[in-house]
């Protein structure tokens, strides 16, 4: 039965769900926006972030350090991948880029399985995230409320980087017109490395944040990657605000559907995407000229 209290609870829950999705989707959309590469290995990087966080937490018992090392490890892996492989693909057709990142995902997942095995790794929420908080109309996990705050802070930071710094200017210019970045004579090689690393780092960070909530196993990245695709297709690929809007729409769709027809939640998510595509093929915040 749907009550007002439950409706509010699910609306809030959708917000948290959405925020978690935005966090993962953001790295994906930035990389695509600037480099024109949809990174199918994004889910695998997210998974590696979670494992890095798990290992760091195991040894230091500090969640802050886990967050830092999760982001740092995946940043490092991202940089290595970009130097070693991805940069050879900038000039190749998008299909090749999809294929190579897709193959990379398999390799990364199976390497982690080889090292850590298939057992889900135990990761607890930090001490400061224990318990529930009373939000008036509902009780909600303290950690997830804090995550909402963390995501907001990260998004603000990212926004400032993108909209208030020179590197951000280049990234945004790249989103709007990749040719222009070349013409401007910017050191493209370094910028691309930086952007790919940034996207990877975002994935890794999201992995650590999610680790106390979901099962940490080698296959954890696959379902979230698909949801992220939905998020950025809804919002418009390459768009900052698109990822935010798409994530929130996806979160609310999942959350509200479970009130009336829980078994249709996933189907509704894809239906929402199809609907938006019919109405607005380029996504909510997408630029029409970019095919």
């Amino acid at each position: 039965m749907v009550t007002w209290a439950l409706l509010w609870a699910q609306l809030f829950n959708g917000l948290v769900l959405g925020a978690l999705l935005v966090l993962v989707a953001m790295g994906l959309t930035i990389v695509f926006g600037t480099l024109g590469i949809v990174n199918f290995a994004h889910g695998a990087l997210y998974m590696i972030g979670a494992y890095a966080g798990y290992v760091a937490f195991l040894h230091t018992q500090s969640f802050i350090l886990a967050m830092v090392s999760g982001a740092a490890v995946v940043l490092l892996i991202g940089v290595i991948l970009e130097r070693g492989l991805i940069r050879h693909y900038y000039a190749r057709p998008p299909e090749d880029q999809i294929l190579v990142t897709f193959g990379l995902a398999i390799v990364l997942i199976e390497i982690v399985r080889l090292i850590f095995g298939g057992i889900s790794r135990r990761t607890d929420e930090p001490i400061w995230g224990n318990g529930v908080v009373n939000l008036g109309l509902l009780y909600y996990p303290r950690y997830q409320v804090e995550v909402l705050g963390i995501v907001t802070l990260v998004l603000i930071a990212l926004y400032l980087v993108l909209y208030r710094t020179k590197i951000g200017l280049i990234v945004r210019a790249g989103i709007e017109d990749p040719l222009m970045v070349n013409i401007l004579g910017i050191n493209v090689t370094r910028t691309f490395l930086l952007v790919f690393g940034l996207g990877a780092m975002a994935a890794g960070f999201a992995g650590v944040i999610n680790a106390p909530i979901v099962s940490v196993d080698p296959d954890m990245g696959a379902p979230i990657l698909i949801q992220c695709f939905v998020v950025i297709v809804i919002g418009g690929v390459g768009s900052f605000w698109g990822a935010v809007a798409g994530g929130l729409i996806a979160g609310e769709t999942l959350s509200l559907t479970t009130m009336v027809a829980p078994d249709y939640a996933q189907v509704m998510l894809f239906a929402a995407m199809a609907f938006i595509l019919i109405v607005r093929p380029q996504g909510l915040f997408g630029v029409k000229t970019r095919q």
Partner: peptide
């Protein structure tokens, strides 16, 4: 899904497949 091409098309077909 065919109204989009390249990457979009790949992601859309993937999503519909999952659906």
């Amino acid at each position: 899904s065919l109204r989009r091409s390249g990457i979009y098309f790949a992601m859309l077909t993937l999503a519909f497949g999952e659906m």
